[in-house]
């Protein structure tokens, strides 16, 4: 479905844009992550697979700084950001497309996109052309309220908003959840395009196996807060992975 693209790694921070090292995370007394490690590299897509409730979203929230970890370290562009607050991580270049999209329903599409400006110097405050090339529908709906968009359009808006930030690391949490096939295709095309540009590291959480497999360069499988399988997509044992994520 998506043709493989030559991998490149032209980061100035070495190979890893993001380096998550043995993090634990607790919700109160309940432990949601146990010693999770993962890396993401510019021009590559790291896919996180797993059943419902195994801690995928929790992992992304830890990366984005929305939840504090109780052990381990997170390094971004070589810097230890483990204790950095979420807005500072966003400013240094981590953009998140959250599960459930979290677009601002009362703001117009244009204003939603403009919320991505916060980390940009004044001269860069514009909506990049490729956002509208990837999601032309947004251009037609600029004046519409975010809350009036369909689910699929909202998902495109959430991705567009993240791209406005010109991030170095893009984390997407189940972008295909509840979305019709034609829009899933658009989203897949967008991720492929972003990977091909080569300057952005991408972490993709997915339950839609075929979609994830086609986009992945690397993958991890999670179960009950732990990573139980990891490797390069090229070497993936699909049957084994499917067995571990089947419900």
């Amino acid at each position: 479905m998506f043709p493989p693209i030559p991998k490149s790694s032209k980061s100035i921070w070495g190979a890893d844009m993001l380096n998550v090292d043995k993090i634990d995370l607790h919700y109160g007394a309940a432990q949601a992550l146990r010693g999770v490690s993962l890396t993401a590299t510019p021009g590559r897509v790291m896919t996180v697979l797993g059943r419902n409730g195994v801690g995928k979203t929790t992992l992304l929230r830890a990366i984005a700084g929305r939840n504090a970890v109780s052990a381990g370290t997170i390094r971004f562009k070589g810097q230890d950001v483990t204790r950095t607050r979420s807005e500072a991580r966003a400013r240094s270049g981590i953009a998140m497309v959250p599960q459930g999209r979290e677009i601002f329903p009362l703001l117009s599409v244009k204003e939603n996109l403009e919320t991505g400006y916060a980390r940009l110097p004044r001269r860069d405050r514009s909506i990049p052309d490729d956002v509208f090339e990837l999601f032309p529908v947004l251009k037609d709906m600029l004046g519409r309220r975010g809350g009036d968009l369909s689910g699929g359009q909202q998902q495109q808006l959430a991705i567009g908003r993240a791209l406005v930030m010109r991030p170095d690391l893009l984390v997407l949490d189940e972008p295909t959840e509840g979305i019709q096939p034609s829009i899933i295709k658009d989203i897949g095309r967008a991720i492929t395009y972003l990977r091909a540009k080569g300057d952005m590291a991408i972490v993709l959480v997915e339950q839609y196996f075929e979609f994830a497999r086609d986009l992945a360069d690397d993958y991890v499988v999670m179960d009950r807060g732990e990573i139980t399988l990891a490797g390069a997509a090229a070497d993936m044992d699909e049957d084994e992975v499917l067995r571990r994520i089947a419900v």
Partner: peptide, 10 residues
């Protein structure tokens, strides 16, 4: 409407 998200946008 969403203070956590606005923080996650920097």
């Amino acid at each position: 409407s969403d203070r956590e998200m606005i923080a996650a946008l920097g």
